[in-house]
Design a protein around this nucleic acid. Structure first.
Length: 84
DNA sequence: TAGTTGACCGGAA
DNA sequence: ATTCCGGCCAACT
C-alpha cells in the first residue's frame, strides 16, 4: 500500500503523451475522489521531472497553475503534445 | 498536537 | 456571465 502522494505521482507519471487528466480524475484513480486539493498540494511540493504534472488540468478544462514556467508554458506544452 | 495553506470543485448570489 | 463561499484532504510550520 503506497501513500496517497506516491500513488498520485505514479498516476501522473503514467499519463500518455497528448493526454490530459483533471485533478479530480487523478484523485479518483489515487483512491480519494475528494482529495483534489491534496493533489494540488502534492504536485506543488513535488518537483520530480519524471512526473509530467503539466498534463494535469482543472476539472472545468482550464490549465490551472504550474511551478515550472507558469500556466502559459503549461498550456503551450499541452497544445504541442496534443497536436503531435 | 494543532492551526494554516493550497497547482481545486461545485453550488449559490 | 462573473464573483463569493464552504468543503474537502494531505503537507507544512
Amino acid at each position: 500500500m503506497k501513500t496517497f502522494t506516491e500513488k498520485v505521482l505514479d498516476i501522473v507519471r503514467g499519463i500518455p503523451k497528448g493526454k490530459t487528466l483533471t485533478y479530480a480524475e487523478v484523485a479518483l484513480q489515487a483512491g480519494n475522489p475528494g482529495a483534489v486539493r491534496a493533489v494540488g498540494s502534492i504536485m506543488k511540493k513535488n518537483y520530480d521531472p519524471t512526473v509530467p504534472c503539466h498534463r494535469v488540468i482543472r476539472a472545468n478544462g482550464t490549465v490551472g497553475e504550474y511551478n515550472r514556467g507558469g500556466s502559459e508554458a503549461k498550456a503551450r506544452l499541452l497544445r504541442f503534445e496534443r497536436e503531435n
